[in-house]
Protein backbone atom coordinates (compact mmCIF):
# COMPACT_ATOMS: atom_id res chain seq x y z
CA UNK A 1 0.00 0.00 0.00
CA UNK A 2 2.65 2.51 -1.01
CA UNK A 3 0.55 4.01 -3.81
CA UNK A 4 -2.39 6.30 -3.26
CA UNK A 5 -5.71 4.83 -4.38
CA UNK A 6 -6.45 5.85 -7.95
CA UNK A 7 -10.01 6.57 -9.08
CA UNK A 8 -11.37 3.51 -10.84
CA UNK A 9 -11.95 4.16 -14.52
CA UNK A 10 -12.74 0.64 -15.67
CA UNK A 11 -16.42 -0.40 -15.88
CA UNK A 12 -17.73 -1.72 -12.57
CA UNK A 13 -20.27 -4.48 -12.23
CA UNK A 14 -23.71 -3.10 -11.44
CA UNK A 15 -24.54 -2.87 -7.76
CA UNK A 16 -27.95 -4.19 -6.71
CA UNK A 17 -28.98 -0.95 -5.00
CA UNK A 18 -28.28 1.39 -7.93
CA UNK A 19 -29.04 -0.97 -10.78
CA UNK A 20 -32.48 -1.23 -12.30
CA UNK A 21 -33.08 -4.98 -12.40
CA UNK A 22 -34.31 -6.33 -15.73
CA UNK A 23 -37.67 -8.13 -15.65
CA UNK A 24 -35.99 -11.54 -15.90
CA UNK A 25 -34.06 -10.78 -12.69
CA UNK A 26 -37.27 -9.81 -10.90
CA UNK A 27 -38.88 -13.04 -12.08
CA UNK A 28 -35.83 -14.98 -10.85
CA UNK A 29 -35.97 -13.57 -7.31
CA UNK A 30 -39.75 -14.04 -7.34
CA UNK A 31 -39.12 -17.72 -8.08
CA UNK A 32 -37.22 -18.01 -4.80
CA UNK A 33 -39.76 -15.96 -2.86
CA UNK A 34 -42.66 -18.09 -4.13
CA UNK A 35 -40.62 -21.22 -3.38
CA UNK A 36 -40.20 -20.17 0.24
CA UNK A 37 -43.88 -19.18 0.39
CA UNK A 38 -44.96 -22.54 -1.02
CA UNK A 39 -42.78 -24.36 1.52
CA UNK A 40 -44.60 -22.50 4.31
CA UNK A 41 -47.88 -23.25 2.51
CA UNK A 42 -47.20 -27.00 2.69
CA UNK A 43 -48.21 -26.74 6.36
CA UNK A 44 -51.73 -25.98 5.09
CA UNK A 45 -51.54 -28.88 2.62
CA UNK A 46 -50.51 -31.25 5.41
CA UNK A 47 -53.22 -29.90 7.73
CA UNK A 48 -55.80 -30.67 5.02
CA UNK A 49 -54.88 -34.37 4.76
CA UNK A 50 -54.23 -34.82 8.49
CA UNK A 51 -57.66 -33.36 9.31
CA UNK A 52 -59.26 -35.97 7.05
CA UNK A 53 -57.33 -38.73 8.84
CA UNK A 54 -58.71 -37.47 12.19
CA UNK A 55 -62.30 -37.75 10.93
CA UNK A 56 -65.34 -35.71 9.82
CA UNK A 57 -65.26 -33.23 12.73
CA UNK A 58 -61.61 -32.30 12.23
CA UNK A 59 -62.19 -32.08 8.47
CA UNK A 60 -65.14 -29.75 9.04
CA UNK A 61 -62.89 -27.52 11.19
CA UNK A 62 -60.34 -27.41 8.36
CA UNK A 63 -63.08 -26.64 5.82
CA UNK A 64 -64.37 -23.86 8.11
CA UNK A 65 -60.90 -22.36 8.32
CA UNK A 66 -60.20 -22.56 4.59
CA UNK A 67 -63.67 -21.15 3.83
CA UNK A 68 -63.03 -18.08 6.00
CA UNK A 69 -61.74 -14.80 4.46
CA UNK A 70 -58.24 -15.53 5.78
CA UNK A 71 -58.44 -19.06 4.39
CA UNK A 72 -59.44 -17.76 0.96
CA UNK A 73 -56.61 -15.22 1.05
CA UNK A 74 -54.07 -17.93 1.94
CA UNK A 75 -55.49 -20.22 -0.74
CA UNK A 76 -55.36 -17.46 -3.34
CA UNK A 77 -51.76 -16.59 -2.45
CA UNK A 78 -50.84 -20.28 -2.51
CA UNK A 79 -52.43 -20.74 -5.95
CA UNK A 80 -50.67 -17.71 -7.48
CA UNK A 81 -47.33 -18.83 -6.02
CA UNK A 82 -47.88 -22.41 -7.18
CA UNK A 83 -48.74 -21.52 -10.79
CA UNK A 84 -45.95 -18.94 -10.95
CA UNK A 85 -43.38 -21.39 -9.57
CA UNK A 86 -44.64 -24.05 -12.00
CA UNK A 87 -44.40 -21.77 -15.08
CA UNK A 88 -41.11 -20.16 -14.13
CA UNK A 89 -39.70 -23.53 -13.01
CA UNK A 90 -40.29 -24.88 -16.52
CA UNK A 91 -38.37 -21.90 -17.96
CA UNK A 92 -35.52 -22.66 -15.54
CA UNK A 93 -35.45 -26.26 -16.78
CA UNK A 94 -35.13 -24.94 -20.36
CA UNK A 95 -32.19 -22.81 -19.19
CA UNK A 96 -30.67 -25.90 -17.57
CA UNK A 97 -30.58 -27.71 -20.92
CA UNK A 98 -28.99 -24.64 -22.52
CA UNK A 99 -32.01 -23.20 -24.29
CA UNK A 100 -33.56 -19.69 -24.42
CA UNK A 101 -30.48 -17.70 -23.43
CA UNK A 102 -30.89 -15.04 -26.16
CA UNK A 103 -32.31 -11.74 -24.89
CA UNK A 104 -35.30 -11.94 -27.24
CA UNK A 105 -36.05 -15.50 -26.07
CA UNK A 106 -35.68 -14.48 -22.43
CA UNK A 107 -38.09 -11.59 -22.93
CA UNK A 108 -40.57 -13.86 -24.67
CA UNK A 109 -40.34 -16.36 -21.80
CA UNK A 110 -40.95 -13.52 -19.29
CA UNK A 111 -44.27 -12.80 -20.99
CA UNK A 112 -45.21 -16.49 -21.25
CA UNK A 113 -44.47 -17.05 -17.54
CA UNK A 114 -46.50 -14.03 -16.42
CA UNK A 115 -49.35 -14.72 -18.81
CA UNK A 116 -49.36 -18.42 -17.86
CA UNK A 117 -49.57 -17.55 -14.17
CA UNK A 118 -52.52 -15.20 -14.72
CA UNK A 119 -54.38 -17.59 -17.03
CA UNK A 120 -53.85 -20.68 -14.83
CA UNK A 121 -54.78 -18.84 -11.61
CA UNK A 122 -57.88 -17.21 -13.13
CA UNK A 123 -58.92 -20.47 -14.81
CA UNK A 124 -58.53 -22.53 -11.64
CA UNK A 125 -60.52 -20.05 -9.51
CA UNK A 126 -63.29 -19.61 -12.10
CA UNK A 127 -63.66 -23.39 -12.41
CA UNK A 128 -63.50 -23.93 -8.64
CA UNK A 129 -66.07 -21.24 -7.86
CA UNK A 130 -68.37 -22.57 -10.59
CA UNK A 131 -68.31 -26.08 -9.05
Amino acid sequence: MTQAAKPVSRPLSPHLQVYRLPLAAWLSITHRITGVGLTIGTVLLTYWIVSAAYGPDAYARFAGFIGSPIGYLLLFGFSVALFYHLCNGIRHLFWDIGMNYEIAETKRANIIVLLGTVVLTAGAWLLALAM
Binding site: A52, Y59, A63, L82, L86, A124, A128, M131
Partner: peptide
Protein backbone atom coordinates in the same frame (compact mmCIF):
# COMPACT_ATOMS: atom_id res chain seq x y z
CA UNK B 1 -47.90 -33.82 -10.21
CA UNK B 2 -48.65 -30.11 -9.68
CA UNK B 3 -51.06 -30.04 -12.61
CA UNK B 4 -52.76 -33.13 -11.13
CA UNK B 5 -52.86 -31.54 -7.67
CA UNK B 6 -54.32 -28.25 -8.93
CA UNK B 7 -56.94 -30.07 -11.03
CA UNK B 8 -57.81 -32.15 -7.96
CA UNK B 9 -58.32 -29.15 -5.69
CA UNK B 10 -60.50 -27.50 -8.33
CA UNK B 11 -62.51 -30.71 -8.74
CA UNK B 12 -63.00 -31.11 -4.98
CA UNK B 13 -63.92 -27.46 -4.40
CA UNK B 14 -67.04 -27.15 -2.27
CA UNK B 15 -67.39 -30.89 -1.62
CA UNK B 16 -67.27 -32.32 1.89
CA UNK B 17 -65.54 -35.01 3.92
Amino acid sequence: LTVWFAATIVGLAGSGY
